[in-house]
Computed example of a mutant assay.
Amino acid sequence: MRSTSRVLRTAAIYVVLLAGAVITLAPFLLSAMTAFKTPQQFAQQPALAAPDPWTVENIVTLFAGPAGFGRALGVTVLMAAFILVFQIVFSIMAAYAFARVDFPGREALFWVYLATLMVPAVVLVVPLYLMMVQLGLRDTFWGLVLPFSFGSPYAIFLLREYFRGIPQDLVDAARLDGASTLDILVEVVVPLSRPIIATLVLITAVSQWNSFLWPLVITSGDTWRVTTVATASLQSQYNGNWTVVMTATTLAIVPLVVLFLVFPKHLVRSITISGFR
């Protein structure tokens, strides 16, 4: 009886997991299938039916038409790469200062800075927008990236806790060998912190690639439009042509799928640490 109940419990767990997987993957499968259908096929065939015949007409329309989706992809790559590099660099430097450098008010300043995590991001949109307007950076690349380039409270918190776990003896030994603070950070701390840095790289890359609200607010034309905003505008631009919209959606998630396939362990670790909040 005990073995039977265990088998039934295991079977029930797998059924629930399978149902969850189907519910999660169905929208992505629907998007990918629709991307290779004509509008007529989309209207006449079942939603999850394979395209018959397959067509790349939607991709041609998306890149050759007035949507400017190719430029939006390029802007998104440039924005995400810029913010990723600068946010990780500044977060590492700030986290090391909070973890290993003694200066007056260090703990108080850290907790005050960390308290900004409690402020909803949407509350900061209007002040940031007014600042960018005053600086003349509205609808520019710098206005798009600067507010998120100088570190992240969440990243600094994680890195600080990880840096504090590095044995002090290693830092002291490097200092006795004549290493400066920057040398210790670059040659000792960073190499020992590769797992957490790789995790933060993935978290930052995914969050910036999916960024929508700030690019929508700070940009107004096609020049610095990102993929999320471009995809949203397609719904009105193509007047309900869902095959083109689904093509844009599918292309927008391809880089994230590639990240998952190339770095599955780090991505799972990032989900465990962050919960993708």
Rank of each mutant, 00 (worst) to 15 (best):
M1E: 11
T4M: 11
I13C: 11
T24I: 14
L25V: 09
A35D: 02
F36K: 01
Q41A: 12
A43R: 04
Q44R: 08
P46Q: 05
A47T: 07
A47K: 03
A49S: 14
D52T: 14
D52E: 11
W54A: 13
T55F: 09
E57Q: 13
N58L: 04
I59E: 06
I59A: 14
V60G: 00
G65K: 06
L73W: 05
V75K: 05
L84D: 01
F90C: 14
A94D: 00
A95T: 03
F98V: 04
V101W: 01
F103G: 05
P104R: 07
G105Q: 01
G105W: 00
F110M: 00
L114I: 12
L114R: 03
V125G: 07
L128T: 14
L130K: 13
M131R: 10
M131W: 07
L137R: 06
T140K: 09
T140F: 08
F141N: 08
V145P: 05
L146S: 13
Y154I: 01
F157E: 00
F163I: 03
R164Q: 13
G165F: 06
I166G: 03
I166K: 00
P167S: 13
A173L: 10
A174N: 01
D177C: 12
A179V: 04
L182W: 14
D183H: 13
L185R: 07
L185I: 02
S193P: 04
R194V: 15
R194Y: 10
R194W: 14
I196D: 02
I197R: 00
A198Y: 05
A198C: 13
V201T: 13
A205K: 02
W209S: 11
W209T: 10
N210H: 10
N210R: 05
W214Y: 09
L216F: 15
V217C: 07
V229R: 01
A230V: 00
A232T: 11
S233Y: 13
L234T: 08
Q235R: 15
Q237K: 12
V244F: 11
V244I: 15
M246F: 14
T250K: 05
V257H: 04
F263M: 13
F263Q: 10
P264D: 05
H266V: 15
R269W: 07
S270T: 11
I271V: 14
I271T: 07
F276Y: 10
F276I: 14
